[in-house]
Simulated scan of single mutants.
Amino acid sequence: MKLRSHSQSHIVELDEGSKWEIFPGDLDLTLDWKPETELTVIESGGEVSSHELIGGGAKVRARAAGESWPVKQVKDALKDG
């Protein structure tokens, strides 16, 4: 799948129409993503994110746009780096 839109730093839309919210600690990894960037979506089953987006030399944690982040797990992950 290719990146359709990355107009907000924390939201990406793929060419098949899905929208993903990027984990706050991984935003810097998406800065070089361009419309031609090929991305793969996989389920992660992690405590913080339900999915991972892989492409452009990066693997980032993500949730479907509109889903809530688990606050305690996010704080712990950001604190741990």
Rank of each mutant, 00 (worst) to 15 (best):
M1R: 13
M1L: 15
R4A: 15
S5R: 14
H6A: 12
S7Y: 10
S7W: 12
S7C: 09
S7M: 12
Q8L: 12
S9I: 09
S9T: 12
S9D: 15
I11A: 06
I11Y: 04
V12F: 02
V12W: 05
L14E: 06
L14G: 10
D15I: 09
E16R: 11
E16C: 07
G17F: 07
K19R: 15
W20S: 03
E21N: 08
I22T: 01
I22D: 04
F23V: 00
F23E: 12
F23S: 07
P24M: 02
D26A: 10
D26N: 13
D26Y: 02
L27W: 04
L27N: 05
D28L: 01
D28V: 02
D28Y: 03
L29W: 05
T30C: 05
L31W: 05
D32Y: 10
D32I: 02
D32L: 12
W33F: 06
W33K: 03
W33C: 03
W33S: 02
W33Y: 03
K34L: 13
K34W: 00
P35L: 09
P35N: 12
P35E: 12
P35F: 09
T40G: 00
V41A: 13
V41L: 15
V41E: 08
V41S: 09
I42T: 12
I42Y: 11
S44L: 04
S44T: 11
G45N: 08
E47F: 08
S49E: 13
S50W: 09
H51L: 04
L53F: 05
L53Q: 07
I54H: 07
I54T: 06
G55F: 05
G56M: 11
G56H: 10
K59V: 13
K59F: 06
V60N: 09
V60I: 12
V60T: 11
R61G: 14
A62N: 08
A62K: 07
A64H: 11
A65E: 13
A65F: 11
A65L: 10
E67G: 00
E67A: 09
S68T: 06
S68D: 14
W69S: 05
V71D: 15
K72Y: 02
V74H: 02
V74M: 06
V74L: 05
V74Y: 04
D76T: 14
D76C: 04
A77G: 08
K79H: 13
K79L: 15
D80Y: 04
G81F: 11
